[in-house]
Amino acid sequence: MAGKCPTTDRGGPNHSKINAEQAYPDVLRARIAVPEVIEFYGMEFDTPGADHSSLIIPRTDAERDTLFSIESRFTKHEPWPRDKGRDTEPKMLEALTFMRALAAPPVMFANHPSRSAEELYGYGLDNPSELRAWNNTAPNVAVGMEGAPGHQAAALAPDGSIKPDGNRGSYRHAPTLGGFDAMSARLGGFWDSLLG
């Protein structure tokens, strides 16, 4: 059996409504069409005060309403016009407090945590103290980070050669290390610290 999370959109204004009314019925249809695949409902969460996170909702009768309540209340790009108060670290800690209190809490992984860094081994929108605060606030929700980010082929030309100006994984200023985010790839670095 394989598991996957088919709803991986990032949000935008009123995306929570689109997710609940349009994407969720597609998830239900996919589960019927391909029952041998365990499909979870979730999204790439526009994380307040940070970059993005993978949010995976447990399979329950309330999964649609659970994601709607999280996304509509906390994702930074949901309101229009934009609300700068939604894009803060305190708002993320409030979101995690809300999530950990749910009957069936989701799990969340920080995505590409070093991608917004301006230099190798630097920190951008995600930094160690922030990720530690997430885990301290909701240890069963904020469970890790993505070490092998997406967009790995972004640096490749159609013929398979490396583009001279290509950025593997869309890491423009702080490159990946062998295809892995520096926060997880550096021996004795941040990931090792979290594990310790």
Rank of each mutant, 00 (worst) to 15 (best):
H15I: 07
P13Q: 15
R73S: 06
F98V: 06
V141R: 01
A33L: 05
N167S: 07
D9F: 12
L102H: 00
L187S: 13
S54V: 15
H112F: 03
E36Q: 09
G122E: 04
L102R: 06
L28W: 10
M1P: 13
P139K: 01
A20D: 15
A20K: 13
A142W: 00
R59I: 15
A104M: 10
P128E: 04
K76F: 12
G42E: 05
R115H: 00
G147D: 01
R132E: 08
T75G: 14
H173K: 09
L177Q: 03
S161V: 02
A154V: 07
F190T: 01
M43L: 13
D87I: 01
T75P: 15
I56D: 07
E21S: 03
T8S: 15
T97M: 05
Y123P: 06
E36T: 07
T66M: 14
S193L: 02
P158Q: 00
I38P: 03
V107T: 13
G12M: 11
M43P: 09
V107M: 12
S72F: 04
S129L: 10
R29L: 12
E130L: 12
L125H: 07
G166N: 02
G189F: 06
P35C: 02
G150I: 00
S16P: 11
T66P: 13
L156A: 00
S72C: 07
L125S: 11
E94I: 08
I57H: 09
S53E: 12
L194A: 06
G49A: 04
S53P: 14
G124W: 05
P58M: 07
A30V: 05
D192P: 07
C5T: 12
Q152L: 15
G49I: 09
P35T: 03
P105S: 11
G12P: 15
V27C: 09
N127Q: 05
N136D: 13
E63G: 13
W191H: 03
V107I: 14
I38C: 04
E130V: 10
F98I: 07
P175R: 01
G144N: 00
P175S: 02
G178C: 04
W134F: 07
P81S: 05
E89Y: 08
I32V: 12
K84M: 08
G124I: 04
P175F: 08
P113G: 06
A50V: 13
D46G: 06
A2Y: 13
P128A: 02
T7G: 11
A157L: 00
E21I: 14
T97V: 09
H52A: 13
G188F: 03
H173R: 02
E146D: 03
S184A: 06
G122A: 10
D126G: 06
D26E: 09
H151S: 10
S69Y: 10
A138K: 00
P164S: 03
E118M: 04
P175C: 00
N140W: 07
F74D: 02
R86S: 07
Q152R: 08
S193C: 04
D126P: 08
G189A: 04
G178E: 03
A153E: 09
A95K: 13
